[in-house]
């Protein structure tokens, strides 16, 4: 075995190198399939998609559509977090409220909300409002559930000892409950982000006049897979970045207690 072979082997043995290799292999397969096997009306090779990214951004209205979708995601996420936090605390801190309302919340969480998507359009119109509302309806429940679970998981001994040392209600909230809720709060934010992405994109794809849903429909109907792939790639990248931001925040803020 030559030295070059040995270095190659030790490189491949590293998992991340092999992982990138797999991804590159898939792209090569896609490229070959799209160039020689598949009707160009349906599949476009990745090299052409990459080159067309500029054309996607140059399409009239696409940058604005991306901005609108991004804005919808942001507003829906912020609203989900605020409402979810308030409802989660209100329900979680009160044992009676929890017993009464948790089954209702779980029931709502378990229903497939896509069935009422047409209702959201009917009530909120075909503009951004319906997308935001639908995103909130998807994002809010995981946040409520993790907040309630987080409040529940605080060891009673911490609450008792804080009270026995004379902590007021506000002090208990500020110094015991809040710090202990941070991990579950960020876990909830991560799940909420997944939900908001799903909700907003579903509503966008269902009906849209100016958001990205309009352009995915347009490109599909024009049999323009190159630009469709390009747009979807941009959106997927956006989703990955948003998820990663929330995941990093979760990892960062839950470091302090790892027991």
């Amino acid at each position: 075995m030559t030295a070059a072979e040995i270095t190659l082997r030790s490189w491949v043995r590293r998992a991340w190198v092999a992982r990138i290799g797999v991804v590159i292999l898939l792209f090569i397969l896609w490229e070959v399939a799209a160039r020689w096997w598949v009707d160009p009306m349906f599949l476009s090779p990745p090299s052409r998609v990459l080159m067309s990214l500029q054309a996607v951004f140059d399409t009239r209205g696409v940058p604005a559509a991306l901005r609108i979708t991004f804005w919808e995601l942001g507003v829906a996420f912020a609203m989900s977090v605020v409402i979810g936090l308030v409802v989660g605390l209100a329900v979680g801190l009160q044992p009676f409220a929890q017993k009464s309302f948790m089954p209702i919340i779980l029931l709502l969480y378990g229903t497939p909300q896509v069935t009422i998507l047409p209702l959201f359009i009917l009530y909120f119109g075909i503009g951004p409002a319906s997308k935001i509302a639908f995103g909130v309806s998807h994002g809010i429940f995981p946040i409520i559930l993790t907040i309630v679970a987080g409040v529940q998981n605080i060891k009673p001994i911490l609450l008792t000892s804080a009270r026995s040392m004379g902590a007021s209600r506000w002090q208990v909230l500020r110094h015991v409950i809040f710090p202990h809720m941070i991990p579950s709060f960020f876990a909830g934010m991560r799940l909420g982000m997944t939900g908001v992405l799903l909700g907003v994109l579903l509503a966008e794809l269902y009906v849209s006049t100016a958001g990205i849903g309009y352009f995915t429909t347009l490109f599909t109907q024009n049999f323009d897979p190159t630009r469709l792939f390009g747009l979807i790639a941009v959106l997927a990248a956006m989703a990955i970045v948003l998820n990663e931001i929330v995941r990093r925040a979760e990892a960062h803020f839950s470091r302090w207690h790892t027991d």
Binding site: F42, L43, T194, L197, L198, L201, L202, L205, T216, T217, F219, T220, F223, P225, L228, F229, I232, L235, A236, A239, I240, N243
Partner: peptide, 15 residues
């Protein structure tokens, strides 16, 4: 898995 796969629906409809 962390990408919302519903995004690919237009592609699937095309295929």
């Amino acid at each position: 898995y962390s990408v919302p796969i519903i995004l690919f629906l237009p592609l699937y409809v095309l295929f």
